[in-house]
Design a protein around this nucleic acid. Structure first.
Length: 813
RNA sequence: GCCGAAGUGGCGGAACUGGCAGACGCGCGCGACUCAAAAUCGCGUUCCCUUGGGAGUGUGGGUUCGAUUCCCACCUUCGGCACCA
């Protein structure tokens, strides 16, 4: 009786040996093509989630595949270790965030090792290490010195639970909740640090040259929200200029009122004495409301007339100025011209308040009447009532109007974006301190680079108060001005942790290098990242920030290339067995450690690849994993049990086996290339089934030996431990992971007999086994000779016979 | 409302360029082994009439000799954005 498959034993053994032998070390080697495979680094929450396995083990399998194909593969791992949860845990359990974080990292390293992934641990980077965040701070200073980091007072999103400001991207959903904790955010006026991501808005819309999922491109494109239009300068009757943004400058002659956002600085100035009380009450009410209340599309529009008038620059008309909260101070210029005839929002507002509706774009074959029309006319037509531009057709209307405005110096073509600058200040403790000092005399001063890192002190009171914990530290903030040497104060906020993760892949290049964020030699060899894998939920956060960061650094002469990651693939999400999101409260959490104890890491890896379309994910199934468990045992038995054959190998069976082996090489190679992991495991199963079936007939043949050899090489990326164990037991040279990927012999994979499908009027009538190379005429003849066909034809003469070479014959009546 | 993705057996999912729908598994049924059970192995398993047909890939239409695949309209689910001027 052969030894039983004991994953616990063999997995631990091989993991230790691989580590000791350093077989996954990735070092510069100009003789081989490099491949930088990267999977998103985890946050050290304490335990590895099955989702981490789902993301990482297929990525590992693919990295291993690339390596066997001859690439020098780097597949590093690290920890995104700064962040709020550490502080929240500290508050709950009264443990220092640092202690909590590093204890978690220790535990998670162990868990990550249990995956059997080919991580090169010498390259590990931990973003909360001073040797790491020194360079996070250094990058901040580079951006600052080049005007890409700036400080301004603004109405910013504030999470009342986490007690910190958030970037716009980190406020999600229609309820406007904090991305981390789900609490609805409020607005606060604060002076905060921003990165000028808007400067790169246009460039970020360009995905040429990178292979990123269409979905991510769409999400980023929508988030950036580019819209082309014009800024038009209006004057108030008192002579104050103000600018409005419109995407429809062609409707300028139809502007029958203006609307200023309640926060617009001109509101109080244009308001006449008799309207003052009403306007002030309205503005106060609008400011009091939350964004959610105010921006609800359900809500009926409200507004008040200020009593003031503006002069339309194109025709000198007096236009009443209103203030209404449907105009947002944060988009465009906070002021619009309202053209109710051609804008649905302006239309409903005009009807509600009895304002004039004046059509200036007349659709063909229709006569719009402002007094009777029921909806705004947003479709195309010809300009009417538009002074010198009357008669201009729709296709030209916008461009012609802009030209006209430019000539009159009343406006110009402008592009508006929804994306805002990235707010990076956080009023929390567990992050990289912002390396800025405030001096009464000299203002904001950057900390000199040779004084980095600005160390995070350990002795702080981290309970959140709404003020930065660093501010409450008795001594930390006190320093001297690097410029004049007088007493000054440090910035007491820390940086958004997305800043740390915007460059971590560079730190992997040389995690302990102390002369620069990375060693240029390593950069020149390894960058850019060839394959990046991770969750799509980061589409407009990390995945946008990282692109911005790289472009900004490129412009500062620090990095090269326009994009950091050439290929991106997103995995889906593993849900609980009940099909719901896993959560402790639902009690549907699948613990990977437990699954590994039950089945072994190889089985868990293979199941996660087999059971789902990788980019979609789905519910964990204790039942479906049984299929993989059985396959694993079948393979084990196949390789460890003595054969029952012994007779002379059957040549036909051997040929059939060889064909299946080479077809499997083709399929597995193709599907690993394209991240279709589920069909890879199917192919392994099929080949194992064929081998079991044919074993007695082929054992002892070279084809059988080839099949076994190829099988272990093919499964090595997916189930690395079992492959190594069986490889070693077969007496082959250590390690299977240092072997070459098998090459498919196309001739051997080719079928010499095919099933010719015979249809009559597109319906399947017969299947005939024919030689693969059969000519069209022969195929036709064989089909027409079929009894089943004769029966279906029922004596009628075919009108047409279609032959698809090597596939089918369709007889049309 | 706008943008995007997806709808295939009881279930997870296959089907590479328009050419055998349901690969590979799970589950289930029957059988073998067993005193028995588990494990394992073999056979079957889209549905409906039954020895042969008919229907069938969300729905309705279209293109084609032929459509899960291409086109149009619609429905459902999920994700994103949402008074963005």
């Amino acid at each position: 009786m052969a030894e039983k498959y004991n994953p616990a034993e063999i997995e631990a053994k091989w993991q230790q040996k691989w580590e000791a032998d350093g077989i996954y070390h990735a070092d510069i080697d100009p003789s081989r093509p490099k491949h930088y495979a990267l999977t998103m680094l985890p946050y050290p929450s304490g335990n590895l989630h099955i989702g981490h396995w789902y993301a990482m083990t297929p990525s590992d399998a693919r990295a291993r595949f690339m390596r066997m194909r001859g690439h020098n593969v780097m597949f590093p791992m690290g920890f995104d270790a700064f962040g709020l949860p550490a502080e929240n845990a500290a508050i709950q359990r009264n443990i220092h965030p640092k202690e909590w974080t590093y204890a978690n990292i220790e535990n998670m390293r162990k868990q990550l090792r249990s995956m059997g992934a080919m991580f090169d641990w010498r390259r590990e980077a931990v973003s909360s290490d001073p040797e790491y965040y020194r360079w996070t701070q250094w990058f901040f200073l580079q951006l600052y010195k080049n005007g890409l980091a700036y400080r301004k007072m603004a109405a910013v999103d504030w999470c009342p639970k986490d007690n910190t400001t958030l970037a716009r991207e980190q406020v999600v959903g229609e309820k406007r909740v904090c991305e981390r904790c789900g609490t609805p955010v409020i607005k606060k006026n604060l002076e905060q640090w921003f990165f000028r991501i808007t400067k790169y808005a246009d460039e970020l819309l360009n995905f040429v040259g990178i292979d990123w999922p269409q979905q991510i491109q769409t999400l980023q494109t929508n988030w950036i929200g580019r819209s082309e239009g014009a800024n038009v300068v209006f004057k108030t009757e008192a002579g104050d200029e103000f600018t409005i943004f419109t995407t429809r400058p062609d409707t300028l002659w139809g502007a029958t009122f203006m609307v200023l956002a309640p926060e617009h600085p001109l509101v109080s100035k244009v308001t006449t004495a008799d309207k003052k009380a009403e306007v002030e009450a309205y503005v106060a009410e609008a400011t009091r409301q939350t964004d959610i209340e105010r921006e609800s599309t359900e809500k009926e529009k409200t507004g008040v007339f200020t009593g003031g008038y503006a002069i339309n620059p194109v025709n000198g008309e007096r236009v009443p100025i209103w203030t209404a909260d449907y105009v947002l101070m944060t988009y465009g210029t906070g002021a619009i011209m309202a053209v109710p005839a051609h804008d649905e929002r302006d239309f409903s507002f005009a009807r509600k308040y009895g304002l004039e509706v004046r059509p200036v774009i007349q659709p063909e074959g229709e006569a719009l009447d402002g007094t009777t029309m029921a909806h705004a006319a947003t479709h195309e037509g010809v300009m009417v009532n538009s002074g010198p531009l009357t008669g201009t057709p729709a296709q030209q209307a916008v461009a012609d109007t802009i030209a006209f405005l430019q000539q009159k110096q009343a406006g110009k073509a402008t592009v508006g974006y929804r994306i805002r600058d990235w707010l990076i200040s956080r009023q929390r403790y567990w992050g990289a301190p912002i390396p800025i000092v405030y001096c009464k005399g000299c203002g904001a001063q950057p900390v000199p680079e040779d004084q980095l890192p600005v160390l995070l002190p350990d002795d702080v009171e981290w309970t959140p108060t709404g003020e930065s914990p660093l501010k409450l530290h008795p001594t930390w903030k006190h320093t001297i001005c690097p410029h004049c040497g007088k007493p000054a104060e440090r910035d007491t906020d820390t940086m958004d942790t997305f800043m740390c993760s915007s460059w971590y892949f560079l730190r992997y290049l040389s995690p302990h290098y102390d002369k620069a964020p990375y060693d240029q030699k390593e950069y020149d060899y390894w960058m850019p990242v060839d394959t990046y894998t991770g969750g799509a939920e980061h589409a407009v956060m990390h995945l946008l920030y990282v692109r911005f960061f790289h472009k900004a650094l490129r412009d500062l002469g620090i990095t090269e290339g326009h994009e950091p990651m050439m290929q991106l693939r997103n995995q889906g999400q593993i849900l609980g067995p009940d099909g719901q999101r896993m959560s402790k409260s639902r009690g549907n959490v699948i613990d990977p450690d437990e699954q590994v104890r039950l089945y072994g890491a190889d089985t868990v890896r293979a199941y996660l690849m087999f059971g789902y379309r990788w980019n979609e994910g789905g519910a964990w199934s204790d039942e479906n994993i049984q299929g993989v468990v059985r396959w694993m045992h079948k393979v084990w038995t196949l390789f460890t049990e003595g054969g029952q054959g012994g007779g002379k190998p059957d040549a036909a069976a051997a040929k059939a086996l060889r064909r299946k082996v080479h077809q499997t090489i083709q399929k597995v190679s193709r599907d690993l290339e394209t991240f279709e992991f589920n069909t890879i495991i199917s192919a392994y199963m099929e080949l194992a089934n064929t081998m079991v079936e044919l074993r007695a007939k082929v054992e002892g043949s070279p084809e059988w030996e080839e099949a076994k050899d190829v099988y272990l090489r093919l499964m090595a990326p997916v189930t690395p431990h079992v492959a190594e164990e069986l490889w070693t037991r077969a007496g082959k040279p250590y390690s299977v992971h240092l072997q070459a990927w098998p090459a498919a012999d196309e001739a051997a994979a080719r079928e010499d007999e095919i099933t010719l499908v015979v249809q009559v009027n597109g319906k399947l009538r017969d299947r005939i086994s024919v030689p693969a190379g059969i000519s069209e005429d022969d195929a036709k003849a064989r089909a027409l000779a079929s009894e089943a066909v004769a029966k279906a034809l029922d004596g009628k003469t075919p009108r047409q016979v279609i032959v698809v070479k090597g596939k089918l014959v369709n007889i049309v009546l």
